Lab assay of single mutants.
Amino acid sequence: MFKRLMMVALLVIAPLSAATAADQTNPYKLMDEAAQKTFDRLKNEQPQIRANPDYLRTIVDQELLPYVQVKYAGALVLGQYYKSATPAQREAYFAAFREYLKQAYGQALAMYHGQTYQIAPEQPLGDKTIVPIRVTIIDPNGRPPVRLDFQWRKNSQTGNWQAYDMIAEGVSMITTKQNEWGTLLRTKGIDGLTAQLKSISQQKITLEEKK
């Protein structure tokens, strides 16, 4: 169930391209415009997507990853294993993690069937560096609404905000991946996880038929 919630949630996290980005210092504006741009692209490019579902990787690479804190999220997933990894191991892992996100997020976007969304009203940021933004996803086919909290983090150097995690039903996506990959990290280390991520990233994206 959580895996499905995570995939549905990713439908609204794909941010804007650099040329049309919203105010990078306001995570609420980023979330709002990102959702609108993403849904528009999914709707307008269905012919290309249906002809070649792996085209979704391109959308992810162009529109999402430049505005997601990939390395920060990847380091959180590694936890204690990050500090013990060599620079070469980290570089290989982050490259594999990025390719994994292209496949995983692309597969999530393949679930698009006309969903709509509501974003919580903007709250004062103050001096906060981590801000959760509640998004409610509404399914046109009558499924119950899904309420999610996207975690946005302020870059201490640039002042810009980027998304790095999502919490559904009190469970963090980062925590879920830590639990899912924990045994592999304990037995085969970061190299074993890197190899698995490379394998997963090679899987073809498949479209979910409308139910």
Rank of each mutant, 00 (worst) to 15 (best):
M1P: 00
M1R: 00
F2T: 02
K3N: 06
R4Y: 15
R4T: 13
R4D: 06
L5F: 11
M7C: 04
V8K: 02
A9H: 01
L10E: 01
L11R: 01
V12S: 04
V12F: 15
V12D: 00
P15Y: 13
P15N: 10
L16N: 00
L16Q: 04
S17W: 10
A19T: 08
A19H: 05
T20H: 14
A22V: 13
D23H: 10
D23A: 12
N26V: 05
N26I: 08
N26P: 06
N26M: 14
N26H: 07
N26F: 10
P27Y: 04
P27N: 02
Y28T: 13
K29P: 12
K29D: 15
K29Y: 13
L30Q: 08
L30N: 05
M31W: 06
D32S: 09
D32N: 08
D32Y: 06
E33C: 04
A35N: 11
A35Y: 04
Q36S: 10
Q36C: 11
T38R: 00
T38S: 09
D40V: 09
D40Y: 10
R41F: 02
R41C: 06
R41G: 05
R41Q: 04
L42D: 01
L42T: 09
L42N: 04
K43N: 09
Q46G: 08
P47S: 12
Q48C: 05
Q48I: 04
Q48L: 13
Q48K: 13
I49K: 03
I49H: 09
R50S: 10
A51F: 09
P53S: 13
Y55Q: 09
L56R: 03
L56Y: 10
R57F: 15
R57L: 15
T58R: 08
T58I: 10
I59Q: 06
V60P: 01
D61I: 02
Q62D: 10
Q62Y: 06
E63I: 01
P66W: 03
Y67P: 01
V68D: 03
Q69W: 00
V70W: 05
K71V: 02
Y72A: 00
Y72F: 04
Y72E: 00
A75V: 02
L76Q: 02
L76T: 03
V77W: 12
V77I: 04
G79N: 03
Q80V: 11
Y81C: 04
Y81L: 04
K83Q: 07
K83H: 05
K83P: 05
S84Y: 12
S84N: 07
A85P: 06
A85F: 03
P87S: 12
Q89L: 05
R90H: 08
E91F: 05
E91V: 08
A92M: 07
Y93C: 06
Y93W: 04
F94L: 10
F94K: 14
A96Q: 10
A96F: 09
A96T: 08
A96W: 08
F97A: 05
F97N: 15
F97E: 05
R98Q: 13
R98F: 08
E99T: 11
E99F: 14
Y100I: 13
Y100P: 00
Y100D: 14
L101D: 15
K102T: 15
Q103R: 07
A104W: 15
A104V: 09
Y105R: 00
Y105I: 01
Y105N: 02
G106F: 03
A108T: 13
A108L: 06
A108R: 00
L109C: 15
L109M: 13
M111R: 03
M111Y: 04
Y112Q: 03
Y112C: 06
T116Q: 15
Y117E: 05
Y117H: 09
Q118T: 12
I119M: 05
I119Y: 10
I119L: 10
A120D: 06
A120W: 15
P121M: 12
E122T: 11
Q123K: 06
Q123V: 12
L125C: 06
L125F: 15
L125W: 14
G126L: 11
G126R: 11
K128L: 07
T129W: 10
T129L: 09
T129D: 06
I130N: 05
I130K: 02
V131Q: 10
V131L: 12
I133Q: 06
R134F: 00
R134E: 02
T136S: 10
T136F: 12
T136M: 10
I137W: 15
I137A: 03
I138Y: 11
I138S: 08
I138P: 15
D139R: 05
P140Y: 08
P140F: 15
G142T: 08
R143W: 07
R143M: 06
R143S: 04
P144F: 12
P144M: 13
P144W: 04
P145C: 05
R147L: 04
R147K: 06
R147S: 03
L148R: 01
F150S: 09
Q151M: 10
Q151C: 04
Q151T: 05
Q151P: 07
Q151R: 05
R153F: 00
K154Q: 14
K154R: 09
N155V: 01
N155F: 01
S156Q: 03
Q157R: 08
T158L: 04
G159I: 06
G159Y: 08
G159V: 08
N160R: 10
W161T: 01
W161P: 01
W161V: 04
Q162S: 05
A163I: 06
A163S: 14
Y164N: 03
Y164I: 07
D165R: 00
D165L: 00
D165V: 01
I167C: 08
I167A: 08
I167P: 06
E169L: 02
E169H: 02
E169C: 04
G170K: 00
G170F: 02
G170V: 01
V171L: 05
V171I: 11
S172F: 00
M173W: 02
T176V: 06
K177P: 00
K177T: 11
K177Q: 15
K177C: 14
Q178H: 07
N179A: 12
E180Q: 03
W181V: 12
W181F: 14
T183F: 09
T183M: 11
L184A: 10
L185Q: 15
L185R: 12
L185K: 15
G189A: 04
G189F: 02
I190T: 10
I190R: 03
I190G: 05
G192Q: 12
L193I: 14
L193P: 10
L193N: 07
T194L: 06
T194G: 07
A195F: 10
A195V: 14
Q196G: 04
L197R: 02
K198C: 08
K198Y: 13
S199L: 12
S199W: 13
I200S: 14
I200P: 14
S201A: 08
Q202P: 14
Q202F: 05
Q202T: 12
Q203M: 06
K204M: 11
I205R: 03
I205P: 15
I205N: 15
T206A: 11
T206H: 07
T206Y: 15
L207Y: 14
L207M: 14
E208Y: 09
E208D: 10
E209D: 10
E209M: 10
E209N: 12
K210I: 06
K210V: 10
K211T: 11
K211Q: 04
